[in-house]
């Protein structure tokens, strides 16, 4: 079990404590809160560290997609005599194959970009972002393709659960593109797509937005990064579904190994909030319920 041998320096606390994530009862968390209250210059430094951390964290987690990786792993498992429960589910196989194809196209475009970059001696950031956007689009298209296909086959009207689950998939399939959109503070999203007041914002929260699509249906994703490093996206679709609840559920309606999601309807907009983390993170993205007005 770890023990505390030395008292940490103030600088260590600024670097390592994440308010909102770490236990508020922790003595070091409380000491940091005191430091931030009493020392504005350290508070400013803390904000800067959080900003850099969010940037580095995003970059560390992003990276190139490796085509065919899943198939090679499964082949190795078979070769090593590991019992597999069956072949890759058909839906997944189609999605992986389609995604790989699209990503391969994106990579070809990138190769062309790199050639230009070599001639000029620099790689413009915009090109790199296009590459990331290509990956994001590829992921989105593959996930949503399945959703549309399923809904073309299934004639019954779209249920809130199938809609919410399909849009929630966008979060993980486009996670590489998280935060690469336009800064909300500098540019408004397309007309009619607005943030929900039920989503909690803090001082230092950064919001960017991206345009995606579900088949012919445009989707605006607001990528929200809280100062504590927590990330979530609010997907907004102009769609009315009768069985969507009128307010966001306090507990996520869907959980995967990485994310939690909930959905609701406000006037003509359907919202799907997906966060990276469990129910507690999800709840921190929701504004506390206020008095009815």
């Amino acid at each position: 079990m770890a023990s505390q041998s030395n008292l940490p320096r103030d600088e260590d606390l600024l670097e390592l404590i994440r308010l909102g994530r770490d236990d508020p009862e922790d003595q070091f968390v409380q000491r940091l809160m005191l430091i931030l209250r009493e020392n504005p210059s350290l508070a400013k430094r803390y904000e800067e560290i959080l900003r850099r951390d969010a940037d580095i964290g995003n970059r560390v987690k992003s990276g190139r997609h490796i085509p065919g990786l899943e198939a090679r792993i499964l082949t190795r498992l078979k070769r090593e005599g590991q019992p597999l429960s069956g072949e890759m589910p058909e839906k997944v196989a189609v999605a992986v194959s389609r995604r790989d194809e699209l990503i391969s196209n994106s990579c070809e475009e990138l190769t062309a970009d790199v050639s230009v970059a070599e001639v000029t001696g620099k790689i413009p950031r915009r090109r790199w972002l296009r590459w990331v956007a290509g990956f994001a689009t590829a992921g989105a298209v593959s996930g949503l393709g399945i959703w549309i296909w399923q809904n073309q086959k299934r004639k019954p009207p779209l249920s809130a659960v199938s809609f919410g689950s399909a849009v929630a998939q966008l979060f993980e399939t486009t996670l590489d593109g998280f935060g690469t959109g336009r800064l909300l503070a500098k540019q408004n999203p397309p007309h009619g797509y607005r943030l929900s007041r039920d989503v909690q914002m803090f001082r230092g929260t950064t919001i960017t937005w991206r345009e995606l699509a579900v088949g012919d249906l445009p989707v605006v994703a607001f990528d929200i990064a809280h100062p504590g490093g927590e990330k979530g996206s609010l997907f907004v679709v102009r769609l009315v579904l009768p069985d969507l609840p009128p307010i966001p559920p306090r507990q996520p309606s869907l959980r995967t190994s990485r994310s939690s999601a909930g959905w609701w309807q406000e006037n003509d907009l359907a919202y799907v909030l997906v966060v990276l983390g469990g129910p507690r993170v999800y709840q921190r993205f929701l504004a506390p319920p206020g008095p009815l007005t």
Partner: peptide
């Protein structure tokens, strides 16, 4: 990488690596 990729706190890192918290704090910082 445990901090940025696995989103672990300094306490969790100390527990996982079996290193004192103070050591993790100074080294990670």
């Amino acid at each position: 990488l445990m901090f940025y990729y696995e989103d672990m706190s300094y306490k969790e890192i100390a527990e996982q690596l079996g290193i004192p918290i103070g050591t993790v704090m100074s080294r990670l910082s």
